[in-house]
């Protein structure tokens, strides 16, 4: 590994100033569990490392007045996993974050780092997409908000430009009468990368318990984590049945563009999207008391 200059800004302004100055020569380090691996492999070779862990504003993990969850860029996964707020109000996020790495990894890795690393298989992405998360980005001009489904550009790439920093993720409050579930398929039980990841979310109408909103997001089966399109059109206002669950699986499988790699073939991935979609939706139905 080549040497670098190690910088520890104390504010977001200071950080964006550094990033603006050094452009692509600078890399942000939060947990380092992706960055250091990449630096050791030689695929990334920064001359400046910008450690954002000393910026107080990036350590926020709390609810705002609307009940939206704010996860600062420096918040480690184990903090999210241990948080009572997350467990109670965003259980799918608790579930997904507990699957990433090991205890050792979760004590360093950050959720925002997981998002910025933009692996197609990132476990935090499908759940966040389902929950309508927003990326909060800062640069020298100020702050902007980007819907998470527009945040990924390709494998390992986000829409962040040089000089920009993801300062946090905002997750809107989950609707009443809603449930969500994330399942991933791996060869090993833990310490593995998903071959397929499916996150589902359903909320019901107050009165007649039919579908009010449905979101399904997929990981590891397209160049980026994706939301399955046209789900709402197919399901809104309708009761959820075994047939409609099967149909949802078919729609999801039809929407992804999986590749064949070391971990799995494209054909297998497509089949598993159907299976995992069905399982997440079945689990949600059970949670919501729906006989499907």
């Amino acid at each position: 590994m080549k040497s670098f200059e190690y910088l520890t800004p104390r504010s977001i302004e200071e950080a964006t100033g550094i990033l603006n100055k050094y452009g692509n020569e600078a890399k942000i380090i939060a947990g380092g569990t992706d960055l250091i691996v990449q630096m050791k492999a030689g695929s990334v070779c920064p001359s400046y490392i910008v450690d954002i862990k000393y910026i107080d504003a990036l350590n926020r993990l709390d609810l705002d007045e609307n009940g939206s969850l704010h996860i600062g860029a420096a918040v480690i996964l184990s903090r999210i996993v241990d948080s009572e707020i997350v467990k109670n109000k965003f259980p799918m996020l608790h579930q997904a974050c507990s699957l990433i790495g090991s205890d050792q990894i979760r004590n360093r890795a950050t959720l925002c780092g997981n998002i910025c690393n933009a692996a197609p298989s990132a476990d935090s992405a499908p759940p966040l997409l389902c929950l309508g998360a927003r990326a909060l980005v800062a640069d020298q001009k100020g702050m902007l908000t980007i819907a998470l489904e527009k945040f990924f550009r390709g494998p390992g790439h986000t829409v962040l430009k040089p000089g920009q920093i993801l300062v946090g993720i905002e997750v809107p409050k989950m609707a009443d009468r809603s449930s969500s579930h994330y399942i991933r398929l791996t060869t090993r039980e833990e310490m593995d990368i998903a071959m397929v990841g499916v996150a589902s979310f359903i909320s019901l109408t107050t009165r007649d318990k039919v579908c009010n909103d449905i979101k399904i997001a997929l990981g590891a089966v397209s160049p980026t984590p994706i939301l399955v399109s046209q789900m709402e059109a197919a399901f809104k206002g309708k009761p959820i049945t075994i047939e409609s669950i099967e149909h949802a699986g078919e729609m999801a499988a039809g929407c992804c563009i999986p590749i064949s790699d070391m971990r799995a073939s494209a054909e297998y991935r497509r089949e598993m999207v159907k299976v995992l979609t069905r399982r997440t939706l079945t689990s949600i139905c059970a949670d919501l008391g729906i006989q499907s």
């Binding site: 380090i29 380092g32 250091i36 691996v37 490392i49 862990k53 184990s78 050792q104 990894i105 004590n107």
Partner: peptide
């Protein structure tokens, strides 16, 4: 392994276990 995959380098840092192969000494 040097990549946080095996845990042989586990130490406690400020009360939490971490893979010391994935922490720069300066951190």
């Amino acid at each position: 392994c040097g990549n946080g995959n095996c845990g042989s380098c586990t130490v406690i840092m400020d009360g939490k276990i971490v893979n010391s192969c994935l922490v720069f000494a300066v951190e």
